[in-house]
Amino acid sequence: MNARLNEQTSIYLQIAQMLENDILRGIYLEEEQVPSTNEMAKMFSINPATAAKGINLLVDEEILYKKRGIGMFVSQGAVEKIRKKRKAAFYNNYIKALVTEAKSLSIEQEELLEMIRKAQSEQQPK
C-alpha cells in the first residue's frame, strides 16, 4: 500500500483503485478489515474526507461493507465483483488505447494480434 498518488486521476478514485488492487492481490482477504478512513488519510497525507469518498465508493459497489463501531471490511465475493468490474472497464481503459496507439504506429490488425499472442505465451509459465 505504499504506491504514491499521481495527478492523473482524482485522489479518491486512486484510493478506491489501490484498495481494489490490494484485494485482488490477496493483501486483504474477504471478511478482513481494511484501514480506516483516518488511517488511509494519514498514510497518504490527504484529507480524511477524500479518503472517505474513495472508501464509500467501494461500499456503494458492495466491495466493502461497514461494521458499526469497528470499521470497514471486505465483502464476501468482493474479488469476483472487482474482476467483473474491471473486465467491463478493460475495453475502455486498455483496448481502446492499445488500438489507438497501434494505429498511430501503423501496426496492422494481424501484427497486433501476433504481438498479443506472443505476450500471452511469454507469461505462461507461472
Partner: peptide, 9 residues
Amino acid sequence: YKLLLDNYA
C-alpha cells in the same frame, strides 16, 4: 500539512 491533517482527524 501532516500536522494539520493529524489534528483535523
